[in-house]
Design a binder for these strands. Structure first.
Lengths: 138, 138
DNA sequence: TATACACTTGCACAAATATGCAAGTGTATG
DNA sequence: CATACACTTGCATATTTGTGCAAGTGTATA
Protein backbone atom coordinates (compact mmCIF):
# COMPACT_ATOMS: atom_id res chain seq x y z
CA UNK A 1 0.00 0.00 0.00
CA UNK A 2 0.95 3.55 0.31
CA UNK A 3 3.27 3.54 3.21
CA UNK A 4 4.65 6.75 4.51
CA UNK A 5 7.78 6.39 2.49
CA UNK A 6 7.19 9.90 1.51
CA UNK A 7 8.88 11.46 -1.41
CA UNK A 8 7.98 13.00 -4.65
CA UNK A 9 6.38 9.84 -5.84
CA UNK A 10 3.70 11.63 -7.73
CA UNK A 11 2.30 8.32 -8.66
CA UNK A 12 -1.29 7.76 -7.65
CA UNK A 13 -1.16 4.97 -5.17
CA UNK A 14 -4.78 4.13 -4.79
CA UNK A 15 -5.67 3.25 -8.31
CA UNK A 16 -5.43 4.71 -11.71
CA UNK A 17 -7.99 7.44 -11.46
CA UNK A 18 -9.46 9.06 -14.43
CA UNK A 19 -8.11 12.39 -15.42
CA UNK A 20 -10.45 15.14 -16.42
CA UNK A 21 -9.81 16.83 -19.67
CA UNK A 22 -7.50 19.69 -19.02
CA UNK A 23 -4.04 18.92 -17.89
CA UNK A 24 -1.85 21.90 -18.16
CA UNK A 25 1.16 21.92 -15.95
CA UNK A 26 0.58 24.61 -13.43
CA UNK A 27 3.40 26.62 -11.90
CA UNK A 28 3.48 25.10 -8.46
CA UNK A 29 6.82 26.27 -7.24
CA UNK A 30 6.85 27.48 -3.70
CA UNK A 31 7.06 31.12 -4.63
CA UNK A 32 4.27 31.16 -7.16
CA UNK A 33 1.94 29.30 -4.87
CA UNK A 34 2.75 31.62 -2.03
CA UNK A 35 2.20 34.73 -4.07
CA UNK A 36 -0.92 33.42 -5.72
CA UNK A 37 -2.38 32.50 -2.35
CA UNK A 38 -1.73 35.96 -1.02
CA UNK A 39 -3.52 37.49 -3.95
CA UNK A 40 -6.50 35.20 -3.65
CA UNK A 41 -6.64 35.85 0.03
CA UNK A 42 -6.67 39.57 -0.49
CA UNK A 43 -9.50 39.19 -2.97
CA UNK A 44 -11.30 36.88 -0.62
CA UNK A 45 -13.29 39.41 1.30
CA UNK A 46 -16.63 40.81 0.18
CA UNK A 47 -15.80 44.35 1.17
CA UNK A 48 -12.48 44.35 -0.60
CA UNK A 49 -13.89 42.58 -3.60
CA UNK A 50 -16.59 45.20 -3.90
CA UNK A 51 -13.92 47.83 -3.74
CA UNK A 52 -11.99 46.13 -6.48
CA UNK A 53 -15.02 45.78 -8.66
CA UNK A 54 -15.46 49.50 -8.24
CA UNK A 55 -11.88 50.19 -9.20
CA UNK A 56 -12.34 48.05 -12.25
CA UNK A 57 -14.46 50.92 -13.51
CA UNK A 58 -11.69 53.41 -13.22
CA UNK A 59 -9.69 55.47 -10.76
CA UNK A 60 -11.20 56.79 -7.57
CA UNK A 61 -9.95 58.66 -4.58
CA UNK A 62 -10.42 57.32 -1.09
CA UNK A 63 -13.12 59.81 -0.20
CA UNK A 64 -15.22 58.86 -3.17
CA UNK A 65 -14.93 55.21 -2.39
CA UNK A 66 -15.85 55.83 1.20
CA UNK A 67 -18.91 57.76 0.16
CA UNK A 68 -20.04 55.23 -2.38
CA UNK A 69 -19.43 52.30 -0.11
CA UNK A 70 -20.88 54.14 2.83
CA UNK A 71 -17.94 53.44 5.03
CA UNK A 72 -15.55 55.51 7.07
CA UNK A 73 -12.58 56.85 5.14
CA UNK A 74 -10.20 55.12 7.50
CA UNK A 75 -11.86 51.80 6.85
CA UNK A 76 -11.54 52.17 3.10
CA UNK A 77 -7.98 53.27 3.48
CA UNK A 78 -7.21 50.19 5.49
CA UNK A 79 -8.75 47.91 2.93
CA UNK A 80 -6.84 49.58 0.16
CA UNK A 81 -3.74 49.13 2.19
CA UNK A 82 -4.27 45.39 2.23
CA UNK A 83 -4.78 45.36 -1.51
CA UNK A 84 -1.78 47.53 -2.03
CA UNK A 85 0.36 45.18 -0.02
CA UNK A 86 -0.16 42.53 -2.65
CA UNK A 87 0.11 44.84 -5.61
CA UNK A 88 -3.51 44.45 -6.50
CA UNK A 89 -4.17 48.13 -6.64
CA UNK A 90 -1.98 51.04 -7.44
CA UNK A 91 -2.15 54.61 -6.25
CA UNK A 92 -0.93 57.96 -7.30
CA UNK A 93 -1.34 61.33 -5.83
CA UNK A 94 -3.34 63.97 -7.60
CA UNK A 95 -3.13 67.21 -5.72
CA UNK A 96 -4.90 66.73 -2.44
CA UNK A 97 -6.28 63.43 -3.53
CA UNK A 98 -4.89 59.96 -3.87
CA UNK A 99 -6.26 58.03 -6.77
CA UNK A 100 -6.54 54.31 -6.64
CA UNK A 101 -6.94 51.95 -9.55
CA UNK A 102 -6.29 48.32 -10.35
CA UNK A 103 -2.64 47.47 -10.68
CA UNK A 104 -2.90 45.75 -14.01
CA UNK A 105 -4.96 43.93 -16.54
CA UNK A 106 -4.24 40.61 -14.94
CA UNK A 107 -6.00 41.65 -11.81
CA UNK A 108 -8.99 42.72 -13.76
CA UNK A 109 -9.07 39.39 -15.53
CA UNK A 110 -8.81 37.45 -12.34
CA UNK A 111 -11.61 39.31 -10.66
CA UNK A 112 -13.79 39.29 -13.75
CA UNK A 113 -13.27 35.58 -13.95
CA UNK A 114 -14.13 34.97 -10.37
CA UNK A 115 -17.23 37.11 -10.44
CA UNK A 116 -18.36 35.52 -13.65
CA UNK A 117 -18.01 32.09 -12.19
CA UNK A 118 -19.74 33.09 -9.00
CA UNK A 119 -22.69 34.53 -10.80
CA UNK A 120 -23.20 31.58 -13.04
CA UNK A 121 -24.47 28.16 -12.12
CA UNK A 122 -21.82 25.55 -11.59
CA UNK A 123 -20.54 23.04 -14.05
CA UNK A 124 -19.70 25.16 -16.94
CA UNK A 125 -17.19 23.28 -18.98
CA UNK A 126 -15.22 25.95 -20.68
CA UNK A 127 -13.14 24.49 -23.41
CA UNK A 128 -10.25 26.84 -23.44
CA UNK A 129 -8.52 26.96 -20.14
CA UNK A 130 -5.73 29.18 -21.27
CA UNK A 131 -7.56 32.07 -22.77
CA UNK A 132 -10.22 32.75 -20.27
CA UNK A 133 -13.17 34.95 -20.72
CA UNK A 134 -11.01 37.74 -19.62
CA UNK A 135 -10.25 39.83 -22.58
CA UNK A 136 -11.98 42.91 -21.50
CA UNK A 137 -10.26 46.19 -21.70
CA UNK A 138 -9.58 48.36 -18.77
CA UNK B 1 -21.39 44.85 12.43
CA UNK B 2 -22.11 48.38 13.23
CA UNK B 3 -24.21 51.12 11.83
CA UNK B 4 -22.22 53.90 10.46
CA UNK B 5 -22.67 57.44 11.40
CA UNK B 6 -20.86 58.53 8.37
CA UNK B 7 -21.11 62.00 7.11
CA UNK B 8 -24.05 62.17 4.79
CA UNK B 9 -22.44 64.62 2.49
CA UNK B 10 -22.81 62.28 -0.39
CA UNK B 11 -20.84 64.55 -2.58
CA UNK B 12 -17.82 62.98 -4.15
CA UNK B 13 -15.05 64.66 -2.33
CA UNK B 14 -13.21 65.05 -5.50
CA UNK B 15 -14.34 65.61 -8.99
CA UNK B 16 -15.18 62.67 -11.14
CA UNK B 17 -12.10 61.26 -12.74
CA UNK B 18 -11.88 60.18 -16.28
CA UNK B 19 -12.45 56.56 -16.18
CA UNK B 20 -10.73 54.80 -18.94
CA UNK B 21 -13.18 53.64 -21.33
CA UNK B 22 -15.45 50.95 -20.82
CA UNK B 23 -15.47 48.06 -18.82
CA UNK B 24 -17.19 44.87 -18.92
CA UNK B 25 -20.04 45.07 -16.58
CA UNK B 26 -18.93 42.94 -13.73
CA UNK B 27 -21.59 41.14 -11.77
CA UNK B 28 -21.42 43.03 -8.53
CA UNK B 29 -24.69 42.01 -6.99
CA UNK B 30 -24.51 41.13 -3.37
CA UNK B 31 -24.78 37.42 -3.94
CA UNK B 32 -22.13 37.14 -6.62
CA UNK B 33 -19.68 39.19 -4.65
CA UNK B 34 -20.31 37.14 -1.58
CA UNK B 35 -19.87 33.87 -3.36
CA UNK B 36 -16.85 35.01 -5.30
CA UNK B 37 -15.22 36.23 -2.13
CA UNK B 38 -15.78 32.89 -0.46
CA UNK B 39 -14.14 31.11 -3.34
CA UNK B 40 -11.17 33.42 -3.43
CA UNK B 41 -10.76 33.09 0.27
CA UNK B 42 -10.80 29.34 0.09
CA UNK B 43 -8.12 29.49 -2.58
CA UNK B 44 -6.18 31.99 -0.57
CA UNK B 45 -4.07 29.63 1.44
CA UNK B 46 -0.80 28.14 0.24
CA UNK B 47 -1.55 24.71 1.60
CA UNK B 48 -4.99 24.54 0.04
CA UNK B 49 -3.75 26.03 -3.18
CA UNK B 50 -1.09 23.40 -3.44
CA UNK B 51 -3.72 20.80 -2.87
CA UNK B 52 -5.82 22.25 -5.63
CA UNK B 53 -2.93 22.39 -8.00
CA UNK B 54 -2.47 18.71 -7.31
CA UNK B 55 -6.09 17.96 -7.96
CA UNK B 56 -5.83 19.81 -11.22
CA UNK B 57 -3.81 16.81 -12.35
CA UNK B 58 -6.58 14.39 -11.70
CA UNK B 59 -8.42 12.60 -8.93
CA UNK B 60 -6.71 11.56 -5.73
CA UNK B 61 -7.77 9.97 -2.50
CA UNK B 62 -7.05 11.61 0.81
CA UNK B 63 -4.32 9.19 1.76
CA UNK B 64 -2.42 9.85 -1.41
CA UNK B 65 -2.64 13.56 -0.96
CA UNK B 66 -1.48 13.25 2.61
CA UNK B 67 1.51 11.22 1.53
CA UNK B 68 2.46 13.51 -1.28
CA UNK B 69 1.98 16.66 0.73
CA UNK B 70 3.66 15.13 3.73
CA UNK B 71 0.85 15.98 6.04
CA UNK B 72 -1.40 14.12 8.41
CA UNK B 73 -4.48 12.63 6.82
CA UNK B 74 -6.70 14.59 9.17
CA UNK B 75 -5.07 17.81 8.11
CA UNK B 76 -5.65 17.10 4.44
CA UNK B 77 -9.19 16.09 5.16
CA UNK B 78 -9.80 19.37 6.93
CA UNK B 79 -8.43 21.38 4.07
CA UNK B 80 -10.52 19.47 1.61
CA UNK B 81 -13.49 20.13 3.80
CA UNK B 82 -12.98 23.84 3.44
CA UNK B 83 -12.70 23.52 -0.30
CA UNK B 84 -15.73 21.32 -0.42
CA UNK B 85 -17.75 23.86 1.50
CA UNK B 86 -17.41 26.24 -1.40
CA UNK B 87 -17.84 23.69 -4.13
CA UNK B 88 -14.30 23.98 -5.26
CA UNK B 89 -13.64 20.30 -5.12
CA UNK B 90 -15.91 17.35 -5.50
CA UNK B 91 -15.67 13.91 -3.99
CA UNK B 92 -16.97 10.51 -4.67
CA UNK B 93 -16.51 7.28 -2.90
CA UNK B 94 -14.65 4.49 -4.56
CA UNK B 95 -14.71 1.42 -2.40
CA UNK B 96 -12.72 2.16 0.69
CA UNK B 97 -11.38 5.35 -0.77
CA UNK B 98 -12.78 8.77 -1.32
CA UNK B 99 -11.61 10.41 -4.47
CA UNK B 100 -11.30 14.15 -4.71
CA UNK B 101 -11.08 16.23 -7.83
CA UNK B 102 -11.74 19.78 -8.93
CA UNK B 103 -15.40 20.63 -9.11
CA UNK B 104 -15.33 22.03 -12.60
CA UNK B 105 -13.39 23.57 -15.39
CA UNK B 106 -14.01 27.05 -14.09
CA UNK B 107 -12.09 26.28 -10.98
CA UNK B 108 -9.23 25.02 -13.00
CA UNK B 109 -9.23 28.18 -15.06
CA UNK B 110 -9.32 30.39 -12.06
CA UNK B 111 -6.44 28.69 -10.36
CA UNK B 112 -4.44 28.40 -13.55
CA UNK B 113 -4.97 32.10 -14.10
CA UNK B 114 -3.90 33.01 -10.62
CA UNK B 115 -0.82 30.86 -10.68
CA UNK B 116 0.13 32.13 -14.07
CA UNK B 117 -0.13 35.70 -12.91
CA UNK B 118 1.78 34.95 -9.76
CA UNK B 119 4.60 33.30 -11.60
CA UNK B 120 5.17 36.00 -14.13
CA UNK B 121 6.75 39.12 -12.78
CA UNK B 122 5.37 40.77 -15.86
CA UNK B 123 3.24 43.75 -16.47
CA UNK B 124 4.00 45.66 -13.47
CA UNK B 125 3.38 49.23 -14.11
CA UNK B 126 6.27 49.56 -11.87
CA UNK B 127 7.24 50.84 -8.68
CA UNK B 128 4.18 52.05 -7.05
CA UNK B 129 5.58 50.62 -3.96
CA UNK B 130 5.70 52.96 -1.11
CA UNK B 131 7.91 55.69 -2.19
CA UNK B 132 7.07 58.31 -4.68
CA UNK B 133 3.55 59.44 -4.43
CA UNK B 134 4.55 62.64 -6.02
CA UNK B 135 1.88 64.71 -7.60
CA UNK B 136 0.88 63.38 -10.92
CA UNK B 137 -1.87 64.43 -13.15
CA UNK B 138 -4.39 61.99 -14.36
C1' DT C 1 -20.27 -10.11 13.20
C1' DA C 2 -15.69 -8.58 14.30
C1' DT C 3 -11.68 -6.10 12.31
C1' DA C 4 -9.06 -3.37 9.70
C1' DC C 5 -9.08 0.52 6.80
C1' DA C 6 -9.84 5.24 5.12
C1' DC C 7 -11.71 9.29 6.30
C1' DT C 8 -14.20 12.83 9.08
C1' DT C 9 -15.22 15.61 13.13
C1' DG C 10 -15.06 17.60 17.73
C1' DC C 11 -12.18 20.30 20.61
C1' DA C 12 -8.87 23.29 22.49
C1' DC C 13 -5.45 26.74 21.22
C1' DA C 14 -2.37 29.67 18.93
C1' DA C 15 -2.12 32.93 15.22
C1' DA C 16 -3.82 35.92 11.77
C1' DT C 17 -7.60 39.46 10.74
C1' DA C 18 -11.04 43.17 10.67
C1' DT C 19 -12.61 47.38 12.57
C1' DG C 20 -13.50 51.65 15.08
C1' DC C 21 -11.35 55.51 17.07
C1' DA C 22 -7.83 58.71 17.75
C1' DA C 23 -3.62 60.67 16.51
C1' DG C 24 -0.23 61.58 12.77
C1' DT C 25 1.49 62.84 7.87
C1' DG C 26 1.55 65.23 3.70
C1' DT C 27 -0.54 69.01 0.46
C1' DA C 28 -2.72 72.95 -0.99
C1' DT C 29 -4.36 77.55 0.46
C1' DG C 30 -5.55 81.65 2.90
C1' DC D 1 3.13 80.30 8.59
C1' DA D 2 -1.33 78.58 10.11
C1' DT D 3 -5.38 75.94 8.67
C1' DA D 4 -8.13 73.00 6.39
C1' DC D 5 -8.20 68.91 3.79
C1' DA D 6 -7.51 64.09 2.42
C1' DC D 7 -5.47 60.18 3.82
C1' DT D 8 -2.73 56.92 6.68
C1' DT D 9 -1.36 54.52 10.86
C1' DG D 10 -1.13 52.91 15.66
C1' DC D 11 -3.82 50.50 19.04
C1' DA D 12 -6.91 47.59 21.52
C1' DT D 13 -10.41 44.33 20.87
C1' DA D 14 -13.54 41.00 18.98
C1' DT D 15 -13.53 37.48 15.39
C1' DT D 16 -12.24 34.37 12.30
C1' DT D 17 -8.82 30.86 10.92
C1' DG D 18 -5.47 27.05 10.88
C1' DT D 19 -3.69 23.12 13.30
C1' DG D 20 -2.89 18.86 15.97
C1' DC D 21 -4.78 15.10 18.51
C1' DA D 22 -8.15 11.95 19.71
C1' DA D 23 -12.49 9.93 19.11
C1' DG D 24 -16.20 8.80 15.74
C1' DT D 25 -18.39 7.15 11.17
C1' DG D 26 -18.75 4.41 7.17
C1' DT D 27 -17.17 0.51 4.06
C1' DA D 28 -15.07 -3.77 2.74
C1' DT D 29 -13.41 -8.23 4.20
C1' DA D 30 -12.10 -12.30 6.99
Amino acid sequence: MYSKSVKETLQPACSPHDHPGSQATLPVDEQSVERCARIFRALGDPARLRLIARLAQGAFCVGELATVEQEAVATISQRLRVLRADNIVRRKRDGKHVLYSLADQHMFDLVANGLAHASEPATHTTSNSEASLASVQL
